[in-house]
């Protein structure tokens, strides 16, 4: 706000009427909002995106439906004897895979915003500097819940039965959100480093495909060559999948859940500060 007294500003001469030309009142700054309120505003923006970019929503809805149906009916018989038996091991795994893949959206969104100069405006505002990232996280959580809900719904309709019931499913979804949160940092860093959203997607997928397929999500690792088994055994995605299966079946041990949490926690501890430094440096 200026200390100089202001008069009304006449900015447009187009829609003049008897009531007069629209005038832009000079307006002073309201009471500064809290960091939490800033974050909520960016969360609201993430929700608006769902409404305005239906192709992304389509992608978000169709991909898990397609993967779940194709794997269950095309490979299920060969891999587990019958599609019904395959569902019991596959549903928790495809949940992990979907969340890990969906984390790429935030990075792409960030790269788009940076390319358009939108973040310059955000950075020149007197707001909590991390609020835009919190907004991206809100978008992520919504995406994970939508995709996860769809997969679970299809699974249940086809005969999947989580033995641990509602409690097990809720626990598994909480783990899922932690996984999504942890993996999300990888793509935020890529989004800050790479110039175009396409580059974020290409590099992201080049890394996501092997790490998801070379895991215990789709196939029993016992059938794989030894060297690959050695990788699958230490692949964080395998730990996540094992814990998800355990939580939904009611057999999870503390150790399994701890192993599943290790990668997301480590990623957050290392990449959150990196994200902040990269963001400030720009």
């Amino acid at each position: 706000m200026s200390d100089v007294p202001m008069s009304d500003v006449r900015l447009s001469d187009a829609p003049t009427s008897d009531t007069g030309t629209p005038l832009l009142r000079p307006v002073a700054r309201p009471r500064p909002p809290s960091a939490f309120s800033n974050a909520l505003v960016f969360g609201w923006r993430a929700v608006l995106k769902f409404r305005h970019v239906p192709e992304q929503l389509f992608d978000l809805v169709m991909t898990p439906i397609m993967f779940t149906l194709l794997f269950t009916f095309v490979f299920g018989g060969a891999l587990a004897g019958s599609p019904g038996d395959y569902l019991q091991v596959f549903i928790p795994g495809i949940l992990v895979q979907t969340v890990v893949f969906n984390a790429v959206y935030s990075g792409m969104g960030l790269s788009t915003d940076l390319g358009k100069g939108l973040f310059d405006r955000f950075r020149s505002l007197p707001i909590w500097p991390l609020a835009p990232f919190a907004g991206l996280m809100v978008g992520d959580i919504l995406r994970h819940l939508i995709a996860g809900g769809i997969i679970l719904g299809i699974g249940l309709a086809l005969g999947y039965r989580p033995e641990a019931g509602v409690v097990g499913v809720v626990a598994a979804f909480l783990l899922l959100l932690v996984i999504g949160f942890g993996v999300g940092w990888i793509f935020l860093v890529l989004g800050l480093l790479l110039k175009t959203p396409t580059a974020v997607m290409t590099i992201g997928f080049a890394f996501l495909f092997p790490i998801n397929f070379a895991s215990n999500i789709m196939v029993d690792p016992a059938t794989m060559p030894d060297w690959l088994q050695a990788f699958v055994d230490v692949n964080p995605v395998s730990f996540m999948t094992t814990a998800m299966r355990g939580l939904m079946a009611g057999t999870a041990t503390v150790g399994e859940v701890a192993l599943a949490l290790a990668a997301p926690v480590l990623l957050t501890l290392v990449l959150a500060p990196v994200t902040l430094v990269l963001y400030r440096r720009r």
């Binding site: 700054r29 309201p30 009471r31 500064p32 909002p33 309120s37 800033n38 505003v41 609201w44 923006r45 608006l48 995106k49 305005h52 970019v53 915003d113 358009k116 100069g117 939108l118 310059d120 405006r121 955000f122 020149s124 505002l125 707001i127 609020a131």
Partner: peptide, 27 residues
């Protein structure tokens, strides 16, 4: 306030939503 060389707007949102976003961020 700064208006950069290239419009720093969210292309996916409507004009009004862009302004609402900023108004809410300002408090």
């Amino acid at each position: 306030a700064m208006t950069g060389q290239f419009a720093s707007l969210d292309e996916d949102l409507t004009g009004r939503e862009n302004l609402l976003l900023l108004a809410r961020l300002w408090g």
